[in-house]
Simulated scan of single mutants.
Amino acid sequence: MTRIEQVISPQVHLRGEVTPEVSAYAVAKVMAVLHHAPGPVLRASLTLDAAAPGDRVDAHVNINGVGVHVHGVGSTMQEAADLMQERLRSRLHHLRRRPQQGPRIPPPELGEPIGVTGAS
């Protein structure tokens, strides 16, 4: 398994009453997974939301140009972080196994209508 040594620390956004210990726990969970990312981590952000129904942790990461978003909802913030970590690990494993399933379609040229194939 590949281990990426240089991983950027995620930007952390807090909503509601989130303790520094819980925030550090969630960051450690994300960092543990990102060290095994299938490519360079270009961006990472983490949102801990204690104000949502149930505690919620969202992770947004960009692995070599491929955006990945996962979340976990639990009865505690730690449980939500654990669920988020498992989902992120699974998504990155999928990217490693099927790298060709990243973004394939280039964005349309400026001025080109979306969804028009050119056939009349």
Score class of each variant (00 low, 15 high):
residue 120 S to N: 07
residue 67 G to C: 07
residue 34 L to A: 11
residue 103 P to F: 00
residue 52 A to I: 04
residue 28 A to T: 00
residue 8 I to W: 01
residue 112 E to A: 05
residue 87 R to T: 01
residue 26 A to Y: 00
residue 12 V to K: 04
residue 85 Q to K: 15
residue 50 A to C: 02
residue 58 D to Y: 04
residue 38 P to H: 05
residue 77 M to R: 13
residue 62 N to I: 15
residue 10 P to V: 00
residue 93 H to P: 00
residue 100 Q to R: 10
residue 45 S to R: 04
residue 51 A to S: 15
residue 52 A to R: 01
residue 81 A to D: 07
residue 116 V to S: 11
residue 113 P to L: 15
residue 107 P to G: 11
residue 99 P to M: 11
residue 2 T to Y: 04
residue 75 S to P: 00
residue 62 N to G: 05
residue 88 L to P: 02
residue 19 T to G: 12
residue 32 A to C: 10
residue 88 L to Y: 03
residue 49 D to E: 08
residue 88 L to F: 01
residue 3 R to S: 09
residue 75 S to A: 13
residue 13 H to E: 12
residue 16 G to C: 01
residue 23 S to F: 11
residue 16 G to A: 00
residue 62 N to E: 06
residue 37 A to G: 01
residue 102 G to W: 10
residue 52 A to F: 09
residue 37 A to I: 03
residue 34 L to E: 13
residue 38 P to I: 04
residue 45 S to Y: 02
residue 46 L to I: 00
residue 18 V to Q: 02
residue 14 L to M: 07
residue 101 Q to D: 11
residue 74 G to E: 10
residue 65 G to F: 12
residue 3 R to V: 15
residue 98 R to H: 15
residue 55 D to L: 09
residue 40 P to M: 11
residue 76 T to S: 14
residue 27 V to I: 15
residue 64 N to A: 15
residue 56 R to M: 12
residue 7 V to T: 14
residue 107 P to L: 15
residue 21 E to F: 10
residue 105 I to D: 03
residue 78 Q to F: 07
residue 50 A to H: 06
residue 18 V to F: 06
residue 84 M to N: 00
residue 50 A to P: 01
residue 60 H to Q: 07
residue 99 P to E: 11
residue 64 N to R: 14
residue 101 Q to N: 08
residue 57 V to C: 09
residue 85 Q to E: 15
residue 53 P to V: 00
residue 113 P to W: 12
residue 62 N to H: 03
residue 35 H to P: 00
residue 109 E to I: 13
residue 64 N to S: 15
residue 109 E to M: 09
residue 61 V to M: 04
residue 95 L to A: 04
residue 108 P to F: 06
residue 27 V to R: 03
residue 52 A to Y: 07
residue 60 H to Y: 10
residue 118 G to T: 07
residue 61 V to L: 05
residue 38 P to C: 02
residue 69 H to N: 08
residue 76 T to F: 11
residue 28 A to L: 12
residue 52 A to K: 04
residue 6 Q to D: 05
residue 20 P to M: 13
residue 42 L to Q: 13
residue 62 N to M: 14
residue 73 V to Q: 12
residue 108 P to N: 14
residue 107 P to D: 14
residue 104 R to N: 11
residue 75 S to V: 00
residue 76 T to H: 06
residue 52 A to P: 00
residue 24 A to F: 01
residue 5 E to I: 03
residue 60 H to M: 04
residue 118 G to M: 08
residue 82 D to P: 00
residue 4 I to C: 09
residue 33 V to D: 01
residue 61 V to I: 09
residue 5 E to M: 10
residue 30 V to S: 06
residue 103 P to T: 03
residue 31 M to R: 11
residue 87 R to L: 10
residue 56 R to I: 13
residue 37 A to V: 06
residue 2 T to I: 02
residue 104 R to T: 04
residue 23 S to E: 15
residue 54 G to T: 12
residue 29 K to W: 12
residue 10 P to W: 03
residue 98 R to D: 12
residue 32 A to G: 14
residue 28 A to M: 11
